[in-house]
Design a protein around this nucleic acid. Structure first.
Lengths: 142, 142
DNA sequence: CAATGAGTGTTTACAGGTGAATATCATCAC
DNA sequence: GTGATGATATTCACCTGTAAACACTCATTG
């Protein structure tokens, strides 16, 4: 399970040092994919396979379903960490997530989110808001 | 069940000696998570898994649900006690709970609270207040 | 062919994390 | 009370992970 929040920076060539702790779970080779909420996601090979399995279940006859499959599959890149523990984030992905210097990585159970600080702060909530939202899902949190 | 109040200090590197009695229940590896009221919480693996199980039930398509999952998961760190019975409290967590030197640990049934002395004193009540609040919940305390 | 830009590899420096040693304190048995 | 034991506190030294800088290769373009 991925957890935790990591603040890092990328170098001028768009390379990101993957936090040592995450690397333990991610391995040397994994997938970087565009995600919702203007972030990128890192998937282990295994988790990526699971995700793709879901995509395969989508109805081919549905135009929106085809768009979704294309969005995810075309954005998936397999990356490899170099000797210094860095990965290169493809230019298209950097543009998509508005990443230029300061980056936040967030553990999200089965994947890792990669954000620009700006987008991260825009989307993250404080403990009060968390309480409110929890209450809205009272059926789950009791 | 966790109970009791423990006063401890952290060293200059942000490490906290986990009280021996709590360590018996917490084990060698457990989770440290941000909580409400500007405190931190320690969860056993078991209790944490229970909580995450709830989070997994939330609908992925809902933006608020995603925010909530990120809030909790990104604040969770798995920590391991070293040979001397200490854990390292991540910098982000120390900042969040305003912890710098003096720390209070409080047993809270299924989890352990970690507070700066200042926050602890600000939030703790005396017997009069306890009586008043108990009276307000007369339906429960009779 | 020169110039540019993207990607790759190497090096260095520093801060923060980690481990070990020691000191202080409390508790308990005798 | 005294000594033994274990828990807590403090300090120091070392090492790893991260940041930043720079040189090099390769492909593309004018």
């Amino acid at each position: 399970m991925f957890t935790g929040e990591y603040h890092h920076s990328i170098d001028t060539k768009g390379r990101l040092i993957v936090p040592a702790k995450l690397r333990e779970s991610l391995g040397d080779k994994f997938f970087i994919v565009k995600g919702v909420d203007k972030c990128l996601n890192l998937y282990t090979n295994e988790e990526w396979e699971k995700f793709v399995a879901k995509l395969r279940k989508l109805p081919e006859g549905n135009a929106n379903a085809r768009k979704l499959v294309r969005f995810y599959l075309s954005s998936a890149f397999e990356v490899e960490v170099d000797k210094q523990g860095r990965i290169l984030i493809p230019t298209t992905h950097r543009d998509y997530a508005k990443i230029d210097k300061e980056v936040v990585l967030s553990g999200e159970d089965n994947k890792v989110g990669v954000w620009s600080v700006e987008n991260w702060e825009a989307i993250s909530i404080d403990d009060e808001e968390a309480t409110d939202i929890s209450n809205a899902f009272a059926d789950i949190f009791g």
